[in-house]
């Protein structure tokens, strides 16, 4: 009983420390409101169930990312059968963040949302890990790829973005000020 309480406390401490992983995955693979909340809870539940098998010698964030992504991707595949459109960003939240941070205008968040919505579940995981600034070696470990494969895929996504930017219409601000 005492050991169980200790384990629970250790788990909760680690979960709090790395809670942003849960937020990111839930945001990436669920719609808004209740669905996102439900997915976050499901991730926490699976993490707790798997915690007994966690090897403390290994990185907790890597272990946590694997479980969270597996749960998130499985959730998205299950929900995709119901032809639901997944919005990875909340409009109100995106606007409030954009208002608070000068270097992240609305256009950037909308472009981020548009990019993520285009991606299949596995590439979505790759982009998320890259945006979270995980090293390539860790991304490879989480996904089960080689490091060189990770680097090649990220470069391809970057290239695709550049090509899309060439074809994209000028942002509203630049059109208003005649800078394009």
């Amino acid at each position: 009983m005492h050991r169980h309480t200790e384990r629970q406390q250790r788990f909760e401490a680690l979960l709090q420390q790395h809670r942003r992983i849960v937020f990111h995955v839930a945001r990436m693979y669920a719609g808004q409101g209740d669905e996102r909340h439900d997915l976050a809870q499901e991730i926490c539940t699976q993490l707790w169930r798997a915690f007994a098998g966690y090897d403390a010698q290994r990185s907790f964030s890597t272990w946590m990312y694997r479980i969270a992504l597996n749960v998130g991707i499985s959730h998205l595949r299950r929900e995709s059968g119901r032809a639901r459109h997944v919005e990875p960003l909340d409009d109100a939240l995106a606007d409030s963040v954009a208002a608070a941070v000068a270097e992240a205008p609305d256009e950037r968040l909308r472009e981020l949302r548009a990019l993520i919505a285009q991606l299949d579940p596995l590439n979505r995981a790759l982009v998320m890990l890259y945006l979270d600034e995980r090293p390539y070696a860790e991304i490879a470990d989480i996904l089960g790829l080689s490091e060189s494969n990770v680097a090649t895929k990220i470069n391809r996504i970057k290239q695709r973005l550049r090509e899309q930017m060439v074809d994209a219409p000028a942002p509203a601000q630049e059109r208003r000020h005649g800078t394009r």
Binding site: A50, I67, N70, P121, L122, L143, L145
Partner: peptide, 9 residues
């Protein structure tokens, strides 16, 4: 679920 993503999917 603690295994690599590609393995489990």
């Amino acid at each position: 679920y603690a295994e690599p993503v590609l393995v489990i999917q």
